[in-house]
């Protein structure tokens, strides 16, 4: 499925948050969105997923969701948003239950997705027993189980330590290589953006405007930490963002 964001403008009360943002997310592509803090990245993602209505502009979806898709636009949240009273398997089955998938059929699907996310041994664990990385794996498993047409990830790795982040990035790349999915990936971490994005959209400070969209030409599976091409790109991104980030930082002091 392809998404088409057309000149979105959004404000909260008097505060303009997004200004005329237009984007296209092609099928099977991971689009990373980077920008200084408070520039409206999360807002943009909420608008794309239909959790909020934009003031101006619209979001169009083109093409059909894959066969068996239970929830075309599916989020992965920064703070995991797992139900603490449900086990890992219970959290993953939450959406299946609403579609009447139970018993053996549900078990087969859940086992498959827990295998893919390396969670098989943690089926019966409660969220409070899991590390942050494991919790985010569960959230990713919960998103994968609905066979989403587009995954919307809001800083999914920023609550995790650097090593766990690296491992999970490798897992995401492996998942994508196995079965390409479409994704919008919001992050403030440029290393994540150059590692996972096919394209990277840079937003200006608030009100967020589209500054630039960069292509990353290296195939996803070939990207390694320390690759000179990626590092050059990351440096280029930082050049674009540096002044914005500094200005955004100053701005907060005046609010």
């Amino acid at each position: 499925m392809e998404l088409n964001v057309q000149s979105l403008t959004h404000r909260y009360g008097d505060v303009p948050v997004l200004q005329d943002v237009s984007l296209t997310i092609a099928s099977g592509e991971i689009l990373c969105i980077v920008g200084p803090s408070g520039c409206g990245k999360s807002t943009l993602l909420r608008l794309i997923g239909g959790l909020e209505r934009p003031d101006v502009g619209r979001i169009l979806q083109r093409g059909d969701a894959p066969e068996g898709c239970l929830n075309p636009l599916t989020y992965v949240f920064q703070d995991f948003a797992l139900l603490p009273w449900r086990t890992v398997a219970g959290n993953v089955s939450l959406v299946l239950e609403d579609h009447g998938i139970r018993g053996g059929a549900a078990d087969a699907i859940i086992n498959d997705v827990l295998d893919r996310t390396k969670l098989r041994d943690f089926r019966a664990a409660l969220p409070r027993q899991l590390s942050g990385g494991m919790k985010q794996r569960v959230a990713i498993a919960r998103a994968l189980v609905v066979d989403p047409a587009v995954m919307l990830l809001d800083e999914p790795l920023s609550a995790l330590d650097a090593q766990t982040r690296d491992l999970l990035m490798e897992d995401l790349v492996a998942l994508w290589s196995r079965q390409p999915f479409t994704a919008v990936y919001v992050t403030h971490n440029l290393a994540e953006a150059v590692r996972l994005g096919h394209r990277i959209a840079v937003l200006s400070r608030r009100p967020g405007q589209l500054r630039e969209v960069l292509d990353v030409d290296v195939p996803l599976a070939e990207r390694r930490p320390g690759d000179p091409r990626l590092e050059a790109l990351q440096a280029q991104l930082w050049q674009v963002m540096k002044d914005e980030a500094a200005a955004a930082d100053q701005e907060l002091l005046h609010v």
Partner: peptide
């Protein structure tokens, strides 16, 4: 509220959100 948002983002029915998220919470 983030849990309720999560339920909505997965397209759960209103009744499911009340039964499986609001009441246990």
């Amino acid at each position: 509220r983030t849990l309720i948002r999560m339920g909505q983002s997965f397209g759960l029915s209103w009744l499911s959100i009340v039964r499986k998220i609001v009441l246990p919470g």
